[in-house]
Each structure stands twice: as structure tokens, then as C-alpha cells.
Amino acid sequence: MTIVYQRPQALTDTVTHYCPGCTHGIIHRLVAEVIDELEIMDQCIGVAPVGCAVFAYNYFECDMAQAAHGRAPAVATGIKRANPANIVFTYQGDGDLAAIGTAETVHAAARSENITIIFVNNAIYGMTGGQMAPTTMPGQITQTSPYGRDPKLAGYPVKVCEMLAEVDGTTYAERVSVDSVKRVRNAKRAIRKAFEYQIAGKGFSIIEVLSTCSTNWGLEPVEALEWLRKNMIPYYPLGVYKDKGASE
């Protein structure tokens, strides 16, 4: 009998705590499949954030560190500098990476740390129950923007890939989405490329993955995917923002 589908070896068989309909599960799986395909699990070290993915250290089968809020790129820097032969990735949400950890993110890019960042952007703080994130859309209602995010009062969303593309040290920045099968496949291609670049010593890569939060958005999972397509993609266009690695 041929096995056509199974859990990637880089994932543990722990039941995740993610809400039904959450796209974190897909993204975890994509990262794990890439780790399997590139056969790097034995030298891989992941860094979990503070946020919905805080328990990522329980879900990946490789060595894992849990970092303080926003500090994952700094922790990953320490790990990578201690042993450059390890393959080091962070898995961070939008509050972690684009608010409290902005400095750590920008400077890891500026140094072109040879690490891979998986950045999950779902436009909301999920774990704390649905507050405004740095990536919350103008007009979007959250617990702390109950009348809709007013840019005059609460500022504008941070476009991470656009920003990091301007940083000389950034090797590769691409924004992908997991709202359809086709885009899931494309997301995996991008994640794989980011890890391949690290293996080749090409420097800092970030893959921003547009993601849903049906629980805190107050939408059914399918509606949430539709909301992402309709609202987020026009504001956060998909595509490659920088790819220095391709020409090297």
C-alpha cells in the first residue's frame, strides 16, 4: 500500500491549541514539509514567539527555543552566531514582529543575519483575544479599535515586506497567502526558497504569510478566507519584494 499523505517528520504528533479554522496549522505544516524535504531537521533550531504560536516549541520536532515577546530575531541571532552550521528559523506573529519586536526585526535584516523568518500576518492580536495589531486594517474593528482603526488616532498599518525590502541587508522578502490551494503551494515554494538561501549562506530571508483569525475576526473560516482576499491582499499585495539571492 502506498502512503500518499502523512504528518511531516518535522512535526510532533501533539494536538495543537489553534482554533478550528485557523491557518497556523497550514503554515506549520508547510515549514515542516520544507524541513523534511531539505533533510535539515537534525541541525534545525526554531524560535517560538509570544503570541498564538507561543507553543510552537511543542509542535516542531527539532530543537526549539521560546523567546521573549518580539525578541525572536535577537535570540535566533545568538543561536546562529553560536553555531553557524545550525539552520535557524523564527516563527512570529504580527504583534511580536511588527510592534514590540520591530527593532530586532529591522536590525537582524540590516545585519543580514543568515536566518529565516516566518512572519504570520493576520491583522490582529489573537492570543490576547483580538486587539488591534500593527497590521490591523484601517477601519477594522477590534477590541481596542471598537469604532474601527482610525489612522489619525491609531496610525497606519505597517507593511513589513515593503519596509524590509529597503534594508540593504535583506536578501529575500516575499509576501504569500494561504487562502487557497494554489497560494498554499506558492507559500511552500517561498518558504523552501528562504531555507535554501540560509543553507547556501545567502543571508536574511523573511516570508510574510497572510493568515486568518476567524475567531477574533468573528467570521466563519470560509468567510475569513474571503475577508482576507477582499481586504488584506489589496492592502498587502502578494509577491516578491526583494530577491538578492536569485542573482547571486
Binding site: 533550531i45 524560535v47 527555543a65 523567546a67 521573549a68 525578541r71 535577537a74 535570540v75 535566533a76 541571532t77 545568538g78 543561536i79 546562529k80 552566531r81 553560536a82 553555531n83 545550525n86 527593532a103 530586532e104 536590525h107
Partner: peptide, 15 residues
């Protein structure tokens, strides 16, 4: 803040 977290990472890696 970043410096102490880099120490955290490097120490976690055993050095």
C-alpha cells in the same frame, strides 16, 4: 534588550 536576548540565544545554543 536585543543584546541580552542574543545572549539568551547563544547561551541556549550552549556557548
Amino acid at each position: 534588550i536585543a543584546a541580552i536576548n542574543m545572549v539568551y540565544g547563544a547561551s541556549a545554543a550552549g556557548v
